[in-house]
Nucleic acid binder design. Structure first.
Length: 343
DNA sequence: AAGGCGACCAACCGCACAAAA
DNA sequence: CTTTTGTGCGGTTGGTCGCCT
């Protein structure tokens, strides 16, 4: 037996909203609020609409100070960085962009930003491929000129499979800067860190947009998804069984870290590190002090120091993560893992 | 001019969560 | 403690528009 529908589907109008409907809904909410019940609201004001539909209409279009279209470069940067960091948590991303709705950002990402980034990535891959080919040719010529007759060609002939720039050592500096940028951003958004290096989850407070215009603060758990992108990320060696019970179902924890990471690598591989400009943009936007944050000297140890998380509402998350950490090698040996391909 | 096609975007759907009963 | 109900969220769909052939 499924749950009862939220409204009488037969007597509910679907499709685009008319200006009259908009006016009725807006006028009522501005005057009375929703009364805390979206389901009952349409009946009250004589709209043949589903309560959920009314809510969506209000949140996405009628609510004051909504911006549509015309995303700025800065907004692009923030969306990209947060998407890379936390995935498709549109409501959280939207909360960082005043006047933007999750629906708007989601649409923007799916229709434009993703393509824009993928196009950029393809260009960069093509360029890398070309320069790599050139390099191979050059080295081959050098090897051949020094080749002892009968000798086996060098095992480390410089051919790598196509690896996202994200994980390539040559890009590590910018990568680390990027981690630090996002980290700082998330801190600015309200996340908490302590000096304890053992635990690594971040809670950030996120403003939602409730009906009455007040600001509710939700606590949203993040793990060190930035670290996940790092070549020194501990997540990669996590035992999926010991780390699979994240309390927030929207956040899939290691599942996201693995499946999500794979998707991200496929979709956005190379974006993070091959785009230092983006990082700079972020920093300047937020006025971050990169030097103060120690970004340039970020070591793998530091990348584990996403900070202590007090068990604010999600003790399970923390304890699971602690379990994971304990089951992980404590030295840097996992840095040599071939998980991300050759180094 | 008309049909095909893709891009864009508003809206819907279903699931999960949390609070209330 | 269990069930019910409202809300929030992300994924998906379907309509519209503009460009191309």
């Amino acid at each position: 037996m499924g749950r009862a529908p939220c409204c009488d589907k037969a007597n509910v109008k679907k499709g685009p909203w008319s200006p009259e409907e908009d006016a009725i809904l807006k006028a009522y909410i501005e005057q009375h609020g929703t009364g805390g019940n979206w389901i009952a609201l349409p009946q009250k004001i004589g709209l043949k609409r589903c309560g959920k539909s009314c809510r969506l209409r209000w949140l996405n279009y009628l609510r004051p100070n909504i911006k549509h279209g015309g995303f700025s470069e800065e907004e692009d940067n923030i969306i990209c960085s947060l998407y890379i960091s936390i995935g498709s948590r549109w409501s959280i991303i939207a909360a960082q962009l005043p006047g933007r709705t999750d629906n708007d950002i989601k649409n923007y990402w799916n229709t434009r930003l993703k393509k824009k980034l993928l196009g950029k990535q393809r260009k960069e891959q093509a360029a890398r491929r070309a320069s790599l080919k050139q390099e191979i040719m050059t080295k081959r010529e050098i090897n051949e000129s020094f080749m002892v007759p009968g000798a086996i060609p060098h095992q480390q002939s410089p051919y790598w499979p196509e690896v996202p720039a994200l994980v390539m050592n040559q890009n590590q500096d910018s990568h680390l800067m990027d981690q630090e940028s996002i980290r700082n951003l998330l801190i600015k958004l309200g996340g908490r860190f302590s000096d304890n290096n053992q635990e690594s989850a971040l809670f950030t407070t996120v403003n939602n947009y409730p009906l009455d215009g007040s600001s509710r603060q939700d606590q949203v758990p993040y793990t060190n998804s930035i670290d996940v992108l790092s070549s020194s990320a501990p997540m990669r060696s996590m035992d999926s069984t010991s780390c699979s019970q994240f309390p927030n179902s929207n956040y899939n924890g290691p599942d996201m870290c693995q499946a999500g990471l794979e998707n991200l690598l496929v979709e956005l591989g190379g974006l993070v590190c091959s785009n230092p400009q983006r990082v700079e943009g972020l920093d300047s936007f937020y006025g971050m002090d990169m030097a103060a944050s120690g970004s340039t000297g970020a070591s793998s140890a530091e990348s584990n120091s996403w900070g202590h998380i007090s068990s604010l509402g999600y003790p399970q998350l923390v304890s699971d993560y602690e379990t994971c950490l304990q089951s992980m090698p404590q030295d840097s040996s996992f840095e040599d893992s071939s998980f991300f391909g050759p180094q």
